[in-house]
Each structure stands twice: as structure tokens, then as C-alpha cells.
Design a protein around this nucleic acid. Structure first.
Length: 376
DNA sequence: CAGCCGTGGAA
DNA sequence: TTTCCAAGGCT
């Protein structure tokens, strides 16, 4: 925890810091070094009066929540080709959207994406400001402000993880970002220029992603290092922001039962409940995840009686626990009593199903060529 | 409010 | 190899 003396120093830093001096140098740097990303309208196009499409800005921002640029690119392209407008996305079948999202993670985002698209289509357009955007499902304070700043030029503070890190170093904050949230927001609000709020927000994020990185920041290349308290006076910028102690991830155990239809190799899938872990996604029948010691696995946990073959285990790391899946395989027995909601997925459709990565791992452990058949 | 909610790539 | 964590939101 921060001592009162540290907090006093932090406040002095914040007070002495002239936030208005940041934007000019940062925007000058951005004009020369902005990353070329699929969802961006370049600074040059913006000067020529081109306005970003709020649909594309929204879609990219939702995809980018806790997700790397590299991971998002191919998904963003696929979505915008398949659904070029919010109306087309609103008209899509739920499972088509979930299938297109499969592998990107945090699947509640896809559910909220569908709900928000339909709300926008019903209203004949996106809300015209940050406050209205904030009311869409899956759009929180960061995302609403990012969309408003980028698409509408609204001068609202855009604070993401990059910005928190950059500001923590600019002010040499001795507090964890969680408890400095209000100060950071106010600082960013004061830094944001009225004329180019969207470019400023993206410039801050580019800086955080390429220069002011978490572990080894390239301070010597930073366009605002002459205004950075940590760089100028310490502590070492790499030690900021102060992080809360991390908790260890528990291990859990479950069993996956991959049933294959003898006649054609189709795989039995079940639709998972709409909320919770992997909500709304498909997968083989999987037992409840339990603590490692009392995990009810083995043939006794099977959804129906069959000659289950042990295929070994599949490991998968979730955000808050590590999962070991005991994978079992069996051909469909005659007259099997299938789990409720189960359906047979033809082999050639497996790759296109709404299967999370962990479920693909389980299926691949039981049927090594499950996702290869159908391809040449 | 602290815990839940995925994944894959970088270091 | 293991660890860390990325343009957060929801409850």
C-alpha cells in the first residue's frame, strides 16, 4: 500500500505535471509513426474529411477488449467481409456469429455484439455520443469513449490499459492504477485536445504498444520523454505501474466424451448454456470442472454407456484456472441415450462450428484428423 | 467490488 | 519452459 508520504509525492507530481504539453508532441509523433491497422482511417484521410464508420470502430474496439491486435486482425477482416454493415450483422443467425467468433475468447462479447447490433439496427443507427454508446451491451466506459472520440471527434477521455501505463509513468504514480483511476481519467481528460481527440487516443495507445511497453520501455525513442516524471526523476519507468500481487491459478479437472458416429464419422456436440464459461458455444459433452482432487472423471461420468477409450489428457489455460481434460472417445452405440440438446455435427462442418479452442483440443485428442477432413 | 470470463504470442 | 498479459465489461 502507498504511504501517506508517497501519496503526497504522487499528488505533487500530478499537480506539477502540465497535461496540455503532451498532445502536440504526441500527435506530431503519431503523424509520422501511426500503425496501419485494418480498422483505422488514416490521419491523411481524416484531413480530407473522411469520417470513420462507427460500425467498424465499434466492432474493432469490442474485438480488441483484452485481445491483441495480432489476434484481432483476421477476425475483423472476416466479420467485415461477411457483415459489412451493422444491419447485416443484426440480421445474422446467432450461431453464425458465434462460429465466426470461435477462438477469439471472451464469448460474452459475441453475445453482446449480436444484441447491440440488433438494438442499433432497431434504432436506425448508432447513438451519436459517448453517453448513448455506453448503453449498448458490451460497451463500457472505455469502449464508448473510444468510439465517440474516434468516430465522432468527441473530446472524451479514452483510458485503456496502455493509457493507464503511460500516465502512471508520466506522473510517476506510486499507487496501483486501480486506486488512481480517477486521477488518471482526469489527467487524460486534461491532456485530450479538442481538435483531434480520436487521433490523440490512438496515439496514446500506439505509444503504449510500441514504445511505452510493459517490460522494457524504449524511453530513448519516446516523443514525450522530456515530460515524463518517471524517466526524468525515477523510479525506473519499467517498474510502473505498481501492480497488485497476483493470485495463483488453481487447477481443475474434467472429462470430455467425444462420441463419433460409426456410419459417417460425425461428432456429437452439445450447445453450452448461454452464460458462464464458454457460454453459447458448442463442444463435446464435458463434465463439470471440479477441483483436482475430487474430479469425477473416468467412464462413470460418461453421458451414456459405450466402449469409451481413454485418449489421454488435453491441457488448457483459462484466465483464472488451469484445466486438465481427460479425453474419452467412443463410437456411437446402438440406441444411445443422447444428452439433452445434443446434435450430430458432420465431419466437414466441424471446422466451421462455434467451437472454442479448448473444445477443439479435446476433439483433436480423440480424433486427430477431425479438423483436416474436407480439406485437400 | 473482487471475481469471472479465453486465447495465443512475446519475453 | 514458464510467465505474463492485450484497445474491458459485467455482476
Amino acid at each position: 500500500m502507498a504511504s501517506s508520504r508517497q501519496v503526497a509525492e504522487m499528488s505533487d507530481n500530478a499537480k506539477a505535471f502540465d497535461s496540455r504539453m503532451i498532445a502536440p508532441a504526441l500527435l506530431d509523433w503519431y503523424d509520422r509513426h501511426a500503425r496501419d491497422l485494418p480498422w483505422r482511417t488514416g490521419p491523411e484521410a481524416l484531413r480530407n474529411g473522411v469520417r470513420p464508420d462507427p460500425y467498424r470502430v465499434w466492432l474493432s474496439e469490442v474485438m480488441l477488449q483484452q485481445t491483441t491486435v495480432a489476434a484481432v486482425k483476421s477476425y475483423y477482416r472476416r466479420f467485415t467481409v461477411t457483415w459489412p454493415t451493422v444491419e447485416s450483422l443484426a440480421a445474422a443467425a446467432d450461431d453464425d456469429v458465434m462460429a465466426a467468433w470461435a477462438g477469439l475468447g471472451y464469448y460474452s462479447r459475441a453475445r453482446n455484439l449480436i444484441a447491440a447490433a440488433r438494438k442499433v439496427a432497431e434504432a436506425s443507427g448508432f447513438p451519436g455520443n459517448a453517453e448513448g454508446l455506453r448503453a449498448l451491451p458490451g460497451v463500457g466506459e472505455y469502449t464508448s469513449n473510444a468510439i465517440a472520440a474516434i468516430a465522432y471527434g468527441e473530446a472524451v477521455p479514452v483510458v485503456d490499459g496502455n493509457v493507464e501505463r503511460v500516465v502512471s509513468r508520466l506522473l510517476a504514480l506510486a499507487e496501483p492504477v486501480k486506486s488512481a483511476k480517477s486521477l488518471i481519467r482526469e489527467t487524460v481528460a486534461a491532456m485530450t485536445p479538442l481538435d483531434r481527440p480520436g487521433d490523440f487516443a490512438q496515439a496514446m495507445m500506439d505509444l503504449g504498444a510500441t514504445i511505452c511497453t510493459p517490460k522494457r520501455p524504449a524511453c530513448v525513442l519516446c516523443p514525450i520523454n522530456d515530460r515524463c516524471t518517471a524517466f526524468l526523476a525515477g523510479p525506473d519507468p519499467a517498474t510502473l505501474p505498481v501492480k497488485a500481487p497476483k493470485k495463483e491459478r488453481p487447477s481443475r479437472l474434467a472429462a470430455a466424451f467425444v462420441a463419433e458416429r460409426a456410419t459417417d464419422g460425425a461428432v456429437l456436440l452439445v450447445r453450452r448454456p448461454p452464460s458462464g464459461l464458454l457460454g453459447g458455444m458448442a463442444g463435446p459433452y464435458v463434465t463439470e470442472f471440479s477441483s483436482k482432487k475430487d474430479g469425477a472423471t473416468g467412464e462413470g461420468a460418461a453421458p451414456f454407456s459405450a466402449d469409451w477409450v481413454d485418449c489421454g489428457t488435453a491441457e488448457h489455460g483459462f484466465t483464472h484456472f488451469l484445466l486438465t481434460l481427460e479425453v474419452m472417445w467412443a463410437q456411437t452405440p446402438h440406441g444411445a441415450d443422447l444428452p439433452p440438446g445434443a446434435f450430430w455435427c458432420p465431419r466437414e462442418r466441424l471446422a466451421g462450428e462455434a467451437l472454442p479452442t479448448v473444445m477443439r483440443k479435446a476433439i483433436a485428442a480423440a480424433i486427430p484428423d477431425a479438423f483436416n477432413s474436407g480439406k485437400i
